[in-house]
Structure formats: structure tokens, C-alpha cells
């Protein structure tokens, strides 16, 4: 079981490395963003696997947290790219 999780970890790690390449390479900002979002998701996987490995449940909160903040991050970045400002004072003006 542990070995299996280890293998999974390595695959996830490699995937993250691949996404990291995309983050650095670009070419456009949205590309990086998408890759980053992917990394966030994989981070969740990684931590989930880690908590099996470490045999502790205290990281589970971290999982949900990453999910939440990666969503917030994604939304704000895309709003920024799209409009240059992320919080409008009054919509539809």
C-alpha cells in the first residue's frame, strides 16, 4: 500500500513538474494561469496522498482550503486579466 502511494506521489510530482514547465514557459499569461490552477489541483492530490503517508488527518483541512483558495485565486486572476480590476465599485456602469 505504502509503495503504491509512493508511486502515485511520484507521478503526481512529475505532473506538477510538467505543469511547472508550462508556468515558466507561458507563452501567454492565461497559459500560466491554467497551469497554475492545475498545480493547485494536483497539490490537493499530493497533500491527500501525503496525509495517508504521514498517517495524520490534520492536513485534510488543508485540502479543502487549497481548493477554496485556488478557486478564489483563479477567479481574481481571470478577472484581472480580463478587466484590469478585480473588484468594481459598481457593476454595469
Amino acid at each position: 500500500m505504502t509503495i503504491f502511494i509512493w508511486i502515485c506521489m511520484i507521478i503526481v510530482g512529475l505532473s506538477m513538474a510538467g505543469l511547472m514547465y508550462r508556468v515558466f514557459k507561458g507563452p501567454s499569461v492565461p497559459d500560466r494561469l491554467i497551469a497554475l490552477d492545475g498545480i493547485g489541483v494536483m497539490l490537493i492530490s499530493a497533500i491527500a496522498l501525503l496525509s495517508i503517508l504521514f498517517d495524520t488527518r490534520f492536513y485534510i483541512d488543508v485540502i479543502l482550503l487549497i481548493a477554496i483558495i485556488s478557486f478564489i485565486g483563479t477567479v481574481s486572476f481571470s478577472k484581472f486579466i480580463e478587466r484590469g480590476e478585480i473588484i468594481e465599485r459598481e457593476r454595469n456602469r
Partner: peptide
Amino acid sequence: LVIETVSVALFLL
């Protein structure tokens, strides 16, 4: 994690 996110949001703001 949370602070980083909020900070990034602040930067973007």
C-alpha cells in the same frame, strides 16, 4: 495559504 491568496488578491486590486 490563505494569507498568500488574500495578499495576491490585494496585489491584483
